[in-house]
Design a protein around this nucleic acid. Structure first.
Lengths: 262, 262
DNA sequence: GAGTGGTCTAGACCACTGT
DNA sequence: CAGTGGTCTAGACCACTCC
């Protein structure tokens, strides 16, 4: 005999996938469902929890349970790196003409609102080993919340690290009021004599931490994409590192690999 | 006043992060925790559910609750594409010398066990629009489960699609017993006169479907990485598509973008 | 204020694990 | 068998949303 909450979840899942319930639709109240299935309310709630953890429904306190509306934003992640490098040495007037400045995520500034904060920090074990520097090295830490102008919830949380000594020659890089960096990260690194050789991006997925769930307004049971971008200069040194947290099923990372012709 | 289950979750979280409880350790039984916090067992279970959804603990029926042991495998995703293209035209004897055949995920065959299945299928709406062909077009569908020889749970679920007519000239491509393809996908496409121009990879994260959770032996509340790889030939036609599902926090996708020198 | 989901209780019984 | 987590009940009261 199947478990009661599974049978309830199965039937509701079929209704959603089959189109009886469409994205945005409200489900019957929990006590009605309990009555309809001949079970107690907590058992119905267990079934709804399963559907929530699958990303099929969204619970809204005081309003009801709703079929979730998927929405996805595409980040053209790696295609931007060469483009940004090409622009990094151009004079500011020309850069202004060729398009909007971007900001580590491949998004355009025009669509977005930033909240930035600067902090001097000592490298912890994780950061130190990524940069290959001793624990405790002075770093510049920048954190942003990236938000669509039209929406209330942040779209991305970004924490970026630089070794303080390598960027100290350009005071702009230590000045919070100069955020976001004109020309982007690569342009600012160029101003202190750094040329990038390659960029590595590491992608994992996991449930959000409580802090992330709150900041990104994610329902429990959802997933985040954790992207760590590491920039290497031409001396094979790590010069910049960004940790980006994105809402998992609302974001699509797009990587394009061009291949040489035979 | 903080909610009871949150206070319990907070305290246990502190114990785990602070090192009082280490990876692999067993937590006290649920009724002991209930007694210790002066709450009912269901309330304690609610707290444990929160920790489980954060990936911090693992529930094992009949044994107890345990602090989760993180383990990550790195897939060098895009760095492999050019390498595979370079090898695709070489004779079989040379390919055998240059390394193990790979299989769409960037993993080496040596470490892995495959279970493959072939099926002829008609393109559904999703697949048809990705290939730019009419719905109902005859496709070849291959599905694998990729498993580490040493482990019981599959590591990846892969479903790969080809348009039947474009590969029909090479009978090996329709023969299940020839799996995995010697030389990899690009080599086999070369045998029917196809040269690839670029590969796109789209990455999202979401909770597993019930089927995925069962197949990959994922605990509820975890995340999967969904990767869709699309291969374009030199006529800008989609010739192959793979959907790969990976356990989210046990897998790290690594993308490397080399940059041209100034 | 009516309707909704959120939290919690106290206990019953079942299912799985290891001895 | 003892110990563990899994499922479920029937109901209470709180908190949020919207009219």
């Amino acid at each position: 005999m199947a478990k009661a909450y599974e049978r309830i979840a199965d039937e509701l899942r079929r209704s959603i996938r089959g189109g009886d319930l469409n994205p945005g639709d409200q489900l019957p109240a929990e006590d009605r469902l309990a009555e309809r299935f001949g079970r107690s309310v907590p058992t119905v709630r267990e079934a709804l929890r399963v559907l929530q953890s699958e990303g099929l429904i969204e619970k809204r306190h005081g309003r009801g349970n709703f079929v979730r509306r998927p929405r996805t934003t595409v980040l053209r992640t790696n295609a931007r790196h060469q483009w940004e490098k090409d622009r990094a040495r151009e004079p500011e007037e020309r850069r202004a003409l060729t398009g909007a400045t971007e900001h580590d995520t491949g998004l355009e500034v025009d669509d977005l609102v930033f909240q930035a904060a600067y902090r001097e920090a000592k490298a912890d074990e994780d950061i130190a080993s990524a940069f290959g520097v001793p624990v405790g090295t002075a770093m510049v830490e920048r954190t942003y919340r990236t938000r669509y102008a039209a929406e209330s919830a942040p779209f991305a949380m970004v924490t970026s690290y630089l070794v303080r000594d390598t960027v100290a020659q350009n005071p702009d890089l230590l000045d919070e009021s100069k955020e976001p960096w004109p020309g982007g990260t690569q342009n600012q690194l160029h101003s202190v004599g750094i040329e990038l050789d390659r960029i590595e991006e590491r992608v994992t997925a996991r449930p959000p931490s409580p802090e992330e769930a709150e900041e990104l307004e994610l329902p429990p049971g959802s997933s985040v994409i954790a992207l760590r971008k590491t920039s290497y200069d031409t001396h094979d040194r790590v010069v910049e590192l960004s940790d980006v947290t994105l809402p998992g099923d609302r974001t699509e990372l797009l990587f394009t690999t061009p291949l040489e012709r035979w």
